[in-house]
Every structure is written in structure tokens, then in C-alpha cells.
Design a protein around this nucleic acid. Sequence first.
RNA 1: UGUGAUAUAGCUUAACGGUGAAAGCAUUUGCCUUAUACGCAAAUAGAUGAAGGUUCAAGUCCUUCUAUCACAACCA
Length: 1128
Amino acid sequence: MGDQKSFREFKQYDHTFFEKEILAFWEEKNIFQKSITEKDPNKPFVFFEGPPSANGMPGIHHVMGRTIKDIFCRYKTLKGYQVKRKAGWDTHGLPIELNVEKELGITKEDIGKKISVEDYNAACRKAVMKYTDVWNDITKRIGYWVDMDHPYITYENKYMESVWWLLKNLYHQKLLYKGYTIQPYSPKAGTGLSSHELNQPGTYQDVKDTTVVAQFLAKPNDILPDNTYFLAWTTTPWTLPSNTALTVGPKIPYVLVKTYNQYTHLPVNLILAKPLVAKQFTGKYEAVEKEEELQYSEGDKKIPYWVGQEFLGQDLVGISYEQLLPYTLPYENSDQAFRVIPGDFVTTEDGTGIVHTAPTFGADDAKVAKDAGVPPMLVLDENGHPVPLVDLQGRFRPEMKELAGKYVKNEYYADGDAPERSVDVEIAIQLKEDNKAFKVEKYEHNYPHCWRTDKPILYYPLDSWFIKVTERKERMVELNNTINWKPKATGTGRFGNWLSNANDWNLSRSRYWGIPIPIWRTEDGKEELCIGSVEELKNACDAAVAAGFMKQNPLADFVIGDMSEANYQSFDLHKNYVDEIVLVSPNGQPMKRESDLIDVWFDSGSMPYAQWHYPFENKDKIDGHQDFPADFIAEGVDQTRGWFYTLHAIATMCFDSIAYKNIISNGLVLDKNGNKMSKRLGNGVDPFETIDQYGSDATRWYMISNAQPWDNLKFDVEGIEETRRKLFGTLANTYSFFALYANIDGVAAQPSERIPVNERPEIDQWVISLLNTLVKEVDEYYADYEPTKAARAIQDFISDNLSNWYVRLCRRRFWKGDYSKDKLAAYQTLQECLEKAAILMSPIAPFYSDFLYRNLKMDMEQSVHLADYPSVDHSVIDKDLEYRMDKAQKISSMVLSLRKRESIKVRQPLQKILLPILDDQFEEQIEQVKSLILAEVNVKEIEYLKDTSGIVKKSIKPDFKVLGKKLGPKMKDLAKAVNGFGQKEIETLEQKGSIVVSLGDENYELQLEETEIRSEDIEGWMVASQDGITVALDVNITDDLQFEGNAREIVNRIQKERKDRGFEVTDRIVINFEATDLINATIHSYKDYIATEVLANKINVVPSHDLNGDAFELEINDDKIKLSIQKA
RNA sequence: UGUGAUAUAGCUUAACGGUGAAAGCAUUUGCCUUAUACGCAAAUAGAUGAAGGUUCAAGUCCUUCUAUCACAACCA
């Protein structure tokens, strides 16, 4: 020891201590930067970071996601790749805007009035970075390595310019178009809503609406009798004035029902789907058998109905009907309206099987109507533009006469202003009076509400820009098939199906804080210009200034070609600036920007290119495939139709390429009961608290080892605690053990002489063999993106094999005797195992692994994260050795179990184990590990039972795998026959090597190799059996054994006393004692043994009164001994 | 409603289509064995969600159903 450097020793596993030390170390020595710069730039591993929105607090699921990303980036670094990881921030979008509005206490209408767009956007820009510090903090605390110093930020001009370039690329490919579609719309918020907003928790609410089954009178035709009405159900009667068609299922059977209207009592003929007759004709209605029985007059309690002729939906297609509520007509093709048309979406689940179709207020409606050439109910407004019958505030237009100006839903009125009768009710009453309502009733159903205003949404036709994704659908599917999805099913199933059914991508958002659509149009829409760069815009502005549309060029200060930050800060591409810009068309007309912003999902899908300001800078990163496509990305499975999709879509359409080669879509983090975490339930887990309490490594390890990343994780802190105890606690203890004795013996971190593995004891060879197997397996698991399997393999090795077998069996080698070759071998073996384990686990547990590694290396400059992944030494992998050690473990475990059954403690030596031997090879194997077993279970010898007839009972089982293929259907007979074998047949088979078995009409010669024979019981002995091995234990305790047991007991007690008194493990002592005759005899026989074990120089018998004051009494197996110990 | 996933001991998870379903936690019991009681050992425990089918053989493949979850959603 002396001056020599020693291993650091620790009392316990204390994550706060080493995490702090390691974080400081990483920072001080720039370990993260080094892990990139020290690698070969020509061997890149490309990773894309999905940008989190800094708008909300990080949750525990972010720890999960980031751990997964971190693991593979760190692993690839160990494997010598250069892994750049640029962080990113998603900074645009509605959630941010709504937060700001809430903070400022304004609504959308106030923007541009109470607050300028400029100030509003400034507030958004500020708000979005509100949680940056918290995010940076959690990133650091969980040890996620990502370059937070140079992130891409979606609101920066360079980023936005790249996005414009991509859009223009699509525009040139003629993939951008403007269309009129039905979208969810919130009248009170004044904006269309994205589907993601519609799926916020709590948006779908149960509401009671007035529903109407309306009667649409068929015009005279060849199929139906006069006075026939089509029945159609609606939960939104306010859309009935906009009805222009009725949709039927072509294959659905319909029937003609003769009956009377319950409100007007007039006779009517009704058409509805056959399966729904019983559902509609309830209450007062009563079926009759014959047409003649249709007798009814007002006041009768029952209304008779009679089911007549049957039709198929396709027979009804084309029949015209009278407009139900003729306020007005569609402004074009009104002659094509009011017909029965076919639609596949029609079901007979509820309603009437005939769907009221209002193309201005339903997406399905719009589609079937368009297919059938039926016009939507659009009228021309004051400016000659076609508009629906409801305005953008949700009120009826003037065409609606007495209903004009009324909101279509009472919820849209301010508190207290709502009329008693909603328009739904008014329309229902009117229909009843006009013999146009078959049934009016309240109906409770699920309807989406605006998550901000909490008012029901409207489906409303809006002008939008679309990307023609449908045109590239096939290519997207093709390219997707080349991507390695983890799990596979998400790629082929959820994502694949989604791709093959992809709709055109609605880009438009009528908001303020986002990337403006870079398209300028003339008033008549005949001329338009798509801008793809700041340079283009500046030049276009120059032309516009020359044409006199603008006084000056807002981009005057921008220097074309100068990529400096300063130059890019001389302007702003956000809405408030670019909306001021009026350009000039080729024909000299003024052009204004299309006022919408693009969907924020386009922002994030653009990140592979926009993060590098492609193609204005870093052209080669993309075109030269240096940083594109990604080798690896990972996000939550909820991004399947989000980021995963937008990345894929943009890469396919703009670059005809995949965007990522390997992808992990990880599952959700649920609470311990399997419920989704939510603020509402208050079952969310604060990641900071968790990490403070349990540490990052334990948290990360728990998450990865407990469930596959793509399965949902039921997050339970008890599991982290278990990981901390079982894995990290054990590992720390193993290291402490190593450090304690290595320091005593002056072991060096870098041994001068390395003992060849084949010269080390068997147990060393065994653990080194396992270690190399582990290195190989873990490498394969990581490479295959299977972190859970890697974690479990490492964990098993450390806690079961290294700690609980190797170290336990080898303890004595570390503290006994001189610094011999055997001792050195033990140190070197343990040291190597710990060091390599540290490297293997470092991707998952970056803190403790580094701490362990540096302590083992005794070098505070080194980091495990700069190490190379260990190479496998195949020459030291010995499967036979691993096999026989496994048997040794099993046999030991069985003997311990027998001891337990007989209540004989391990400290009491026993004479022998009986072990039946079924073949010579087995004996050879056991013989090699015999000493380990005997030491472990404290038994003197193993007696092999070879000539087993009559003593050992055996069982036999056919080898199904081999025989099944051979025999096929006869297998069952054979199994039956073999199961019926007695000891005699088994013996015959063993001796002759084969036996003839009769299988009904033929015989089969069963070979010994085609069976498995196991020992099951030993006659006259208490046995334990497991996996075909049976052991018996001789539990007879002779006097000698008793003495030895007592001696060990004494040693054990004295050791404890030493420990209690705080003696050093090297202190030598003197023992004085007085005891019973039996104990005296024991000590007499085992004096040397005891002295060596407890490091006693002398053991003296002394009379009781001569013992020191600190003497103490022990009970050894019912006998008493009084003794004192003191340092020599 | 559609798409996809999941369902194995009280809990969390294992198990190339080969037949006695394996661990850890929890529980019970015993052990302070000179690394570790935040530890060790042992014991107890399950007809693999239900019903069919394919097969000589099914926890594993197929069908239907049930439950849970996610995602997509305009049941008029």
C-alpha cells in the first residue's frame, strides 16, 4: 500500500454523489464534444432529433423517449461512429398561440385590433422559449446527450426560408393546389381546427340534440306510387335547408311502408331500410298483416302500418324529390339537385338507412354529392362569391328569411341571449305542421367541441391549400417497405395502412404565429407566384417598388448571398411582415399573399433540410447524403401520423427518398395501474422528483429493462427502487469488495503482468467465458435496436453470475494468504468483468458506468463514453464450461434445498451427496466442478450412483421434435407407448441402444438418442429433482462433523465480534476462553483452523475468573462458551 | 366506427409450433455465512382472457368474441 495510488472506496451506492461528480466531469472536460470530434467524420451515424415544443413542461414519458434515443447514439459512438445530434425546438402552432391568448387575456378577434399582429407574434416568440431552461435542465439531468448549444429553431428566418424552398419545390411539381373542403370549424374561435385539436381530451362530449326524421316527397316516377316519402334522419336539423341529396346504400334492401303521419294523421307511403323498420315504428305504431287492415282515424290509440314492396338501394338511385325547405336554390346546377344518390358509407345501424345529404356541412356528403354531380347549397353573397347558408359566425344568411341572423346552435349566443326555441326546434315544428316530419325526438350522442371555447364545432366549407399527397401515395408505400420499423407491425400496419389511404394534406391554418404560405396571388386568382427564397422575395419586392405597389423594399438591408446571422436578422418572414408585401404580377397586377399559414407539422417534417438551411448552405449534407437520410430516429407511437408521416411525405415528394432507415416508435408511459397519465387524474409523474429520489440511471434502466420500448410501460416507482437495489446496489457492492481487497494487496489499475486466461482457475475461465458471450450478445441486441434484451442480459450477468456466484465462491481467494498467482488471477478477472460491464451498460446507465469505469481505471481523465466497445475473444468462450457450471449451480441449489428441508444449517458440514450418473460424460463434467459444489454446500464428497438398477428410478420422454417429423400421425401412439415404459424397458433401451415399440400394425425401432432419460428418485433417500438431475443428501452427522460444525460456528461468532468491535480485517488477535467439555474438545481438534480463520496468534484456555471484563458468552449448538478477544 | 397493438402466477415480464410453462417482485419461512439485512437461501403459487379451428403436436398459427390501450375519425 503505502504511497501507491489506491482505488476509491465508498460506503454505499449514492446516486446524488456520483451523478453530480460525473455531470461536472462531462462539462469540465467536454466529454460530449469529444465523443463526437474524436470520431471519424467519414463514419457517420445520422440521427434526427424530433423537436419537442418548449411550450409545456417535460413529463416522465419524455425521459423514456430521450433515453431510447440516447442509448443508440451512445452505442454507435462506442462502436466508433461519429454521431452528431442537433437539438431542435418546435416553436409554432396553435397550442402556443392559445397559451399566449390566455396569458394576455385576449381572443382571436382581438388580434389586429387590441393588439397588433407584430406584438402578438413577439409575445409568441417569447412564450415559446418559456420552458427552455426546464427542458435544458431535464436533458442534462437524465444524461441525454444532444447539442443544446446549436439547436434548430423553427421560427428562425433560415429555417423558414428552407421550408419555403421545399414548398416551392412541391409547387413546381404541381403538387400544391387550392381547394374548397369541409373542415371542423369553431365559429367562436374563428378558425378551422386541425384533427389533432379535435382529439384533445374532453372535446367529444355527450349532448342532447333535437333530431328529426324528415319526409322527403318523391316526385312522380316509374317505381314508387304517388304520395311516397323518403325518410331521412338528422341530428342537425339546421342543415336541412342545405339538403341537396339523399344517399342510399346500393346493396341495402329498402321497403315501402303504408301508414299514417302521427302529427298530421294523413295517410303516407314511406321508404326506409328494411332492417330499420322495427326501430322506427315504435310506440303508437302497430304492424298489420294485410293492407286492408290499415284503418285509422285521428284519436285512435294505435297507428297501423303495413310493410309492402321491397327495393334495393340501387333501384332508388336517380329518383327526384321535392326540396324539403325551399328557401333558396344552389347558385349553379340546381337542376341536378334533390336526387337519390348512392354512397358506400350508409349503414343500417341507426336512422333510416337513407342519409340526409348537405354537401356544405359534411365531408362524406360533399364527396358523394360531387361524385354524383349534385351541387352543394351555395348562394352568391353581396360580392358575388359563393357561400353556404350559414356565415362564419355560425348565423343563418338573409336567404333564410324568418330564420335569418339566428345562430344555428343556441350555444353560440352570449349568456342569456339565446332564444327559447333553437333553430333546430323551429325547423322541427315547421316540418311537423307541413307533414314533412315523421318523428321528432331528443337524442343523446357524442359530438366534438372546440377545446378552447367549449362550444360545439361546425363542419364548414373553407378554402385551403393542399398538397396532392394522393398522387405520390404508391411511392410512399414503396419507400416505406425499405424502412426498418421497430416494432414491425407499426410500419406495415398502422403506418402502412395510413399511407395507402392517405388523403391530400391540408396545409392551411388561419392563424398568426407560423410560417406563412409563400404564395402571392392577383385578386382574380389568375396569376400567382410562389416564393422559394429570401433572394426571390427581395427581387420581387424590387419589381413591386418599381411598379409603384410599395414605397420601399422591406428587404432592402438583406444582402443576397450573405449567410451571416446578422444578415438574416435584418428582416422577418412572419405574417405581420410578409402580409405588408404587395408584389407585381407579370401582367402588372398587384398580388397579395394568401393569408393562411402552413400546418406546423410541415415545419417539423422539414427539419432534415431546414436544420442545415438547405439548400442555401450545407448543400452537400443532403445532396451528398452526409446527414440524410437518418440512420435512426425514435419518437412516441403517437407521432406515426405526425412527425413520422411528415418526414416521410416530404422526403418522398421532394427527394424521392426515405427520411430514416431505422425507427423506433415507442409506447406510452402509463401509471402503475395502466391508466393514461393526465393532469386531470393527477396521476402524472414529475420526472425531476423521480430522478432526485432514485437517480437517472436507475430510472433509465428500469424503463428500458421492464418493457420493450414499443410496449406501453406501466410506470411504477417500486420498479425503479428494485432496479436500484438489485442491479446498481449489487454492482456497487461488487466494486467495493474489489476495491477493499485490491487496496490491501496493492493491486494496480493497469497490471504489469497479465495472467493468461487458460492459466487461471476454472471459475475464472467460466466467468470470462460468460463475459465474452455477453459482449457478443449485447452487441447484437443493440445493433438490432433491442435495448430491453441488452439490459436484461447485462443485469443477469452482473447480479446472478458475477456477484452471486463468482464473487461469492471466490471470496476467500481475495483475502486469504499472500499475493499469489491465484489471487492475482482473481483480481484480474473481476477487474476485467467490471470494466467491460461498465462499457456495455454505459448507453443505458451513462452516469454510474462512467463512475465505475473511471474508478477502476484509477484515472479521472478517462471516460467510458470515449472507450471502444470491447471485442469478443472467441477463444475464451467455452460452452462446455458454461454448461457444467450451470449444472453445479443447479446441484448446489438442490442440496441447499435439502438442507433446508432437514433444517441443517450450511455451516454444519455433511458427509456426502449421492448423484445418479446416466452417462459417463456427465460424471466427467461434474467431476470438474465438484470442488465448487462441495465448498458451496459444505459437504465432504460426492458419491456417483452408476449401476443404478433398483436404486435410481428413471423416467423417459420421447424426443418429439425428431420423432414427430419422422412419424407424423403415429407420434401419438409412440408417445403413449413410451410413457408406459417401466424401469425394465428403460434399462433395456439403455443397454441395447434401441428397443422395438409396437405401433398398432407396425413396429418401430426406437433409438436411445431419440429419447430423453432422466433420474427421478433414489430409493430410500430424500431427494431433490430438477431438470432431470436428482440428488440425495446424507444427513447423518457424526461426532467429527459435529466438531467441525462447532468450530465453524465459533469462527463465525468471533468474526462477527471482530466486525462489531471495528477491528481492521488485517488485525491479529489473542483469544482467551472457558467452555464446556464438548466445546473444549472441538477447539482442541480445530485450534489451527480457528486460529487461521480469525487471525488469532494464540488461543488459550483460562479459568472463568481470569477472563477480561469485556468477555462475552456464546451459545454454540446448545453448548456454552465464554471468551474474550483482544488485539495482539 | 375503422386501423393497429396487448391479454401468461397477486404484480412486472420470459418461453425457435415439440408436449412436464420460466424468472424477478410480493407473500411465508429460515439465515446478521469477515461485500452487501437496501443482503442471502428456501417454500408457496398459474389448465397462458373466452370459444372454435389448423396440426401427430398450439401460450405460440388461423377465425370469432370479450376486455384494455393507442391512433384515425362528420353514425347522418
